[in-house]
Design a protein around this nucleic acid. Structure first.
Lengths: 207, 207, 207, 207
DNA sequence: GATGAATGAGTTTTCATTCAT
DNA sequence: GATGAATGAAAACTCATTCAT
């Protein structure tokens, strides 16, 4: 994550930044944005409060940086997941697999992520959600494109428009992840992506 | 909502309570729990701050009352939606229709509702989310039962287990609603429930 | 206490007033002036808050009335105690006896009384203490007079000036009462007034 | 009071604490605990309200610190007063002298002190009074011991039990101090401790 | 460049008092 | 004349942010 070819000073700076963000993530995801004070974060990150403010203009800025940072990771991983495979079905399968893996590895952050992308921002004025949702929407466009090209290839039937299909697929993933987050044992996220895929692929109705 | 056969005093009390809850809902959904002060709520409801405290012990109590009140309405409507029709398919279709209608009519509240049921409670300590999620889980059991009996009747194929199917169906609805909430024109919630239902009913894959 | 020859209405008014004062005394002595609300008093006295304000202009007025009322009783009893006996020694003995009896019977009030007469008024601005202390000082003059005339009669030696002697005698009583108030069993107020009187009467020093 | 060999920072901290306590003492003794706001104290001490809260957790904590601080000084001085002289009579004489001096020098605090040790705590729940009274009781035991040993030495007659004698002696001092507090000119505290001592030492009664 | 003491605006909550019914 | 709902000033306390060292 930290570029190794930066000047030593700069590398040190970034490492400190990471530490602060890590402390903030821990606290925010545990107690919620408004129930965490800047002092708490500084203390947990083992820096003076003034130092914290050297890195982030204010609390909101710190929060935004945190969300952006992790969202970027997510986004990168997911874009890669649907880019690498050539086959449309494989793209979808990989998407589910990677999304499950990435989210489960970042459990503490998911709450915050859902909050931001589903419109219930901790800090509603922040405007961050707008940006993220925008990117999220554009990402769904790419998923929709997969459905679209699958249809053109004759692999998929046009049971619905591509964009709604993309929304549906992603919503199902989110739904499962949300339940997994709540009680991982009672609601494990399916190891096999086909469990989710089949819901779309196979027709429920017996005709 | 207000019983018409109550003593005048009591009716007046309830009307005032409603006004306060309405003001609180407006503000909470616009700015978030922590960014709204009790003074603001009192002002918007056009009561003195002391009067507000006559009706609600404290801020958290007011918030809980609000969430509970509307959640109850939602729950009642949704239970009715899946109870009235006899046919399993009709139950599902009606569920989508009613959920869409109820949520769209209560847009300001949805943010809060999602926050509470999806684990990003504004007020993490409240314990209210627990109760609501529990009821939500039990409600999904009822949806699962519809899939289950549809399978037994030979109407549905067992493309997945009933509970995951229930999660999937509801997640798709939530996904659409979430997008509708963000930009109602760009992402209208489908008037025709079949748009959503077909995603489950029809097989996407061409074999 | 309530004059029997007053018009019925007036008698009723006075009875209600007494009830309010009684409730207030209970609460004030238990929890202190500032930790008791007017609502509490009204509730305990079983009147509406508005009615309470018909009888007393405000909280301070109620408090003053209460202190004055009981102080008057105390004062009357103590004046009588030193008036009735003819003999100077008997006057003093009777004073100790009556003071002990009156105070012990009004235990809840003593704290308040001491507060007011010893300068630690709950409500320092009240100015009530001034008036009470004035009367108290004048009362001590009467005690001093007893010592004075005892000296003139040759019954007492002039071991100190009469007024300091009066202060001393009364302080000793108060000291004992204060300890009794704290733990009645460990520090009983002496049944026999001579226990206190002897401290003055007999010389401690062996010459 | 402030150790001169502490690090500069620490010394500065203590000086500020003293300033806050001094302001609080002034206000509390003038207007009473409940009639003084934290803002007032901060203002008088010339600090921001937040700084006040850096030093004391809350209002009660500040009050307790204040009472404890000065009580400790009093206690130390009085214990020394009865410890230093060898002779029992000299111990008592010194006690009266020192108590008079210490109390007169701390007039503003006496009101509070009496309040706490005589059971009319401003803040009834504080529990501080309990602790102080306990120590006060134990201190009176030490005075009683002086009377006791004086009796064993044949210096004192057993005109009463030692503990009541201790109560009496101290109550007389308090009585005089209370009157002095009210009007220092009308009721000066006797320069010569014998004025008080003689009341105990010499027999009033002419036999 | 790091530090953390100091700041004070802003929040929740209480309660004495009023006045329309 | 009693009632008690409504009022809002004032209190305790928190915490994001600044800036002198």
């Amino acid at each position: 994550m930290i570029q190794p070819d930066l000047p030593r000073k700069e590398r040190e700076r970034l490492r400190q930044r990471e530490q602060m963000l890590a402390a903030a993530l821990d606290l925010f995801s545990e107690k919620g944005y408004h129930n965490v004070s800047m002092h708490e974060i500084a203390q947990k990150a083992e820096f003076a409060i003034g130092t914290l403010y050297k890195y982030f203009e204010n609390k909101e800025d710190l929060y935004k940086a945190l969300v952006r940072e992790v969202s970027d990771q997510f986004h990168t991983a997911l874009v890669q997941a649907i880019t690498e495979p050539d086959d449309v079905v494989e793209k979808l399968r990989n998407y589910i697999k990677v999304k499950g893996a990435v989210f489960r590895k970042n459990a503490p952050f998911i709450k915050i992520f859902f909050a931001e992308t589903q419109g219930v921002s901790f800090n509603i004025r922040s405007g961050l959600d707008r940006e993220l949702r925008e990117r999220y929407t554009r990402f769904l466009d790419r998923i929709a494109l997969i459905f679209e090209s699958g249809m053109k290839q004759g692999r998929f039937k046009r049971i619905a428009e591509p964009y709604p299909l993309a929304v549906a697929l992603d919503s199902i993933c989110n739904g499962f992840l949300s339940f997994w987050l709540e009680s991982p044992e009672r609601h494990p996220f399916p190891e096999d992506p086909n469990v989710i895929l089949d819901i779309l692929f196979k027709g429920l109705l017996n005709e």
